[in-house]
């Protein structure tokens, strides 16, 4: 197992560098000059803009700039934000926990709703319960996030007064944003879980379990679900990028700090080091989560072996 993880980590390195190279290239395709934006409104003369560009190293050939970036990266230095003048790593570190918390809460919501609707749907296939469950979870993906968020606030914060409109530190403030985000993801889980359960329920070992006299619920939970979960977990791993996309919206509407809003602000301001930092961090999280998913296979499926 250790060797497997090590090999996977090593294999991830080219992807990490690929991502940094891609973001670097794209950033320099964006028309516009960060130095001019940084000095906007400062009464700086064109000469000062040129000298700032030089001091930021933006006048050097692209390859040299990238080399420099990678050199500093391997030394653990993500640079300094053009806008806030804070260290990129520090600023990302400050908001990362908020996004991670939101992501976890979202996954809990998505898994609860998705697995619930999926299991019930598979057990009562074709019945109105199946229809209602699937319909409910699909509704989550059909309603644009930004609209759903506002509707949730109107109902649960303004009308009913049960939950805060703003997402503050506590668990109460996490409920609406994570429901708003997780509901959409639940649809994918429901569908996958239901389909896989149906398939599993047709397998001989399930028939055997029935033959042994186990009740339907027990069969599903103890035998079929375990196998049906594997693709679900894989899928969740691939949702890391999507989570960030959703987080951009949800963070804006619920007034939460986080990576999503940080990234959008950085793109708008052409804050190169910050964009690079955020993309790198998200890519790393994506790779690590998917590695964790692969490792989780072993726990879920004894047939999988890592040599």
């Amino acid at each position: 197992m250790g060797a497997f993880i090590g090999r996977r980590l090593l294999a991830s390195l080219p992807i990490v560098f690929g991502v940094t190279a891609l973001v670097f290239l794209i950033l320099h395709l964006i028309p516009g000059d960060p130095a001019q934006i940084m000095l906007f409104g400062t009464d700086a003369t064109p000469d000062q803009i040129v000298s700032l560009r030089r001091s930021l190293g933006l006048d050097r050939p692209l390859l040299v700039q990238y080399g420099d970036f990678v050199w500093r990266l391997v030394h653990g230095d993500l640079g300094v934000s053009f806008i806030s003048q804070r260290r990129v790593a520090e600023e990302i570190g400050l908001v990362f926990p908020a996004t991670a918390t939101l992501a976890l809460a979202t996954m809990v919501v998505a898994a609860t709703v998705g697995l619930g609707a999926g299991i019930i749907g598979a057990m009562y296939r074709g019945s109105w319960i199946d229809l209602a469950g699937t319909g409910f979870s699909v509704l989550g993906v059909a309603v644009p996030n930004f609209w759903l968020s506002v509707l949730l606030i109107l109902v649960f914060a303004v009308r009913l007064g049960w939950l805060p409109a703003l997402s503050e530190g506590g668990a109460r403030g996490l409920i609406l944003p994570s429901v708003s985000l997780g509901w959409g993801f639940s649809a994918i889980i429901t569908r996958l879980c239901r389909a896989n359960l149906l398939e599993a329920l047709g397998q001989p070992y399930v028939s055997t379990a029935y033959a042994k006299g186990l009740r339907a619920g027990a069969v599903v939970v103890r035998h079929a679900l375990k196998n049906a979960l594997i693709p679900v977990v894989t899928l969740l791993g691939l949702q890391v990028g999507n989570l960030l996309s959703g987080a951009v919206v949800v963070e804006t509407i619920f007034g939460r700090q986080g990576l999503g809003s940080l990234a959008v602000r950085a793109i708008q301001a052409k804050d190169f080091p910050m964009i690079q930092g955020v993309v790198l961090v998200v890519a790393l999280v994506y790779l690590l989560v998917n590695l964790a998913v692969d490792v989780a296979y072993a726990a879920l499926d004894p047939r999988v072996r890592y040599g």
């Binding site: 691939l238 990028g241 951009v248 990234a263 964009i275 955020v278 993309v279 998200v282 890519a283 994506y286």
Partner: peptide, 10 residues
């Protein structure tokens, strides 16, 4: 893989 690791919204 690189594109997938690159957050879609960004």
């Amino acid at each position: 893989d690189i594109m997938l690791a690159f957050p879609g919204i960004l």
